[in-house]
Amino acid sequence: MDCRTIETYTSGAASYAAEWANQPAPDDLYARLTLYFRPQERTVDIGCGSGRDGAWLNAHGYPTAGYDASEGLVRQAAAGYPQYDFGLATLPELKGVSAASFDNVLCETVIMHLPIGQFGPACRRLVELLKPGGVLYLSWRVTGGGSARDPAGRLYSAFDPALVTDALEGATIALDEEALTSSPP
């Protein structure tokens, strides 16, 4: 994971958590998760941020643990949702997160913060988390032009989506689409 991005999220964790709490719920994401995820099965949210999506999953019948690379965001998630489990883990390694342990894996708008050379290992590691027949929901924000940092310092890597699909070789891809969202970064 890009160290400067992690530091940006850690130092601004309270502000990011407040911003995300005040955004409209990502109902389009939740509809997709309801359609594809297996209810009542172990779920993990990689890049859980403030814990909002993990809390939604837990409340809707998907027992979910969350992991993030930012210590500050993990603290925000644990404070906001103390009844759920959150921990520190960084893509692509995700040390401490057991392979073949989850039926559902969510990684929503995280991988674009990785240096391009880490995309393949990160995608393969996300698949390794799945039990046989499990479901991975993976999304990212597309950056026009070249890789860039936003004013806060977060890296947004520009890459060919084939880097992801190539890394997922052998997995069944049930949905592959480009969608526009009005949600802010």
Rank of each mutant, 00 (worst) to 15 (best):
R4W: 08
R4M: 14
T5M: 08
E7H: 13
E7Y: 03
T8G: 12
Y9F: 15
T10S: 15
T10Y: 05
S11C: 13
G12I: 09
G12M: 10
A14K: 14
A17V: 03
A17N: 06
A18F: 04
A25G: 06
A25M: 12
D28Q: 13
D28I: 02
D28G: 04
D28W: 13
D28R: 11
L29R: 01
L29Q: 08
L29K: 00
A31H: 09
R32P: 03
L33H: 01
T34F: 03
T34C: 11
L35K: 14
Y36I: 09
R38I: 10
P39F: 01
P39E: 12
Q40L: 12
E41W: 00
R42L: 12
R42Y: 04
T43R: 08
V44L: 02
V44E: 04
D45G: 08
I46A: 01
C48Q: 03
G49Q: 00
G49Y: 08
G51M: 07
R52C: 03
R52Y: 02
G54R: 02
L57R: 11
N58L: 04
N58R: 11
N58E: 15
A59Y: 01
H60Y: 00
G61E: 05
Y62P: 06
P63W: 01
P63N: 12
T64D: 02
T64N: 06
T64A: 06
A65W: 07
Y67E: 05
D68S: 10
S70L: 08
L73Y: 05
V74C: 09
R75Q: 14
R75L: 14
Q76F: 06
Q76W: 00
A77L: 04
A77D: 04
A78M: 08
